[in-house]
Write a protein that binds this DNA or RNA. Structure first.
Length: 257
DNA sequence: ATGGTGGCCCGGCCA
């Protein structure tokens, strides 16, 4: 199963490139983040015409997450299905695709270490971890999306540029490591421990061409499926050309187990 | 050099 994740930074702005990418790469499952669409504006029919079932959890002009699947899409769940209050933003959606329980996630950015949004980010990650502690045993899960966390020092182009910044702080990295401690494998880092594999480059200042990126989009796989990962691929081409997202695609080959 | 670019949609906010 080819499983991909892409923060598209507005599906309206990115739809031609998303369709072109799907036709070229033929993923079995594609997780999208930052669709910036209301649910009634999501192009379900256009994706259906390409062979994909879809689930979208949106709120309008900000956030929004989706899963596209051509290997089945069952038991969709929007947000934290934990009995607690609804999340303030549309940042999480689940579906079972070809036997794998898949999450498309858009973790809060955090903005600044002193910002209320940073507190929200850490709380969001804590709530996710608690939810995952109660996940169904014996089933494999894939957490796919924009985590807004660079888990290691090699995951930013220059650590000195991130002093006192979000994405690299100890509490954020502890939240990421907590997921690893729950049995989730960072499949890109596992297969490609080399530095410089980024998934996001700021639009500003020619960051992409200067290789000033960050590895903040991740696919984390648990259970028996984690041992079936046969390739992991950052598609830098999706960041090139006309009207790219500021994130590119991360794709993995994994067999549900 | 707290700039720069591109999304939201038309005045700034957010990434």
């Amino acid at each position: 199963m080819k499983l991909a994740t892409w923060n598209v930074n507005s599906l309206n702005a990115r739809m031609p490139r998303v369709v072109q990418w799907i036709e070229e790469m033929e993923p079995d499952v594609l997780c999208l983040q930052e669709t910036k669409l209301a649910d009634d504006a999501f192009p379900h029919l256009e994706f259906r015409a390409l062979g994909y079932d879809t689930v979208h959890h949106g709120q309008g002009q900000w956030n929004g997450v989706a899963i596209l699947s051509r290997v089945g899409l069952d038991d969709p769940v929007a947000g934290f299905d934990d009995g607690g209050p609804p999340d303030r933003d549309a940042r999480l959606v689940w579906a079972t695709c070809g036997g794998l329980r898949v999450a498309s996630m858009y973790v809060p950015n955090g903005r600044e270490l002193t910002d209320d949004h940073y507190t929200y980010k850490l709380g969001w990650l804590d709530r996710l971890a608690v939810l995952l502690e109660g996940r169904t045993p014996g089933r494999s899960h894939a957490l796919c999306g924009d985590f807004n966390i660079a888990p290691g020092d090699d995951d930013v182009w220059d650590l000195a540029a991130f002093v006192d910044s979000t994405h690299v702080s100890a509490p954020e990295r502890a939240a990421f490591d907590r997921l690893v401690g729950l049995g989730f494998r960072d499949v890109l880092r596992t297969r490609h421990p080399d530095a410089g594999l980024y998934t996001y480059w700021d639009y500003r200042g020619g960051a992409f061409h200067k290789r000033q990126g960050m590895r903040i989009d991740h696919v984390l796989v648990d259970g028996a499926a984690a041992d079936t990962v046969s390739f992991v691929f950052v598609d830098r081409n999706a960041r090139k050309g006309d009207k790219p997202s500021d994130h590119t695609v991360l794709m993995v080959e994994v067999e549900p187990a």
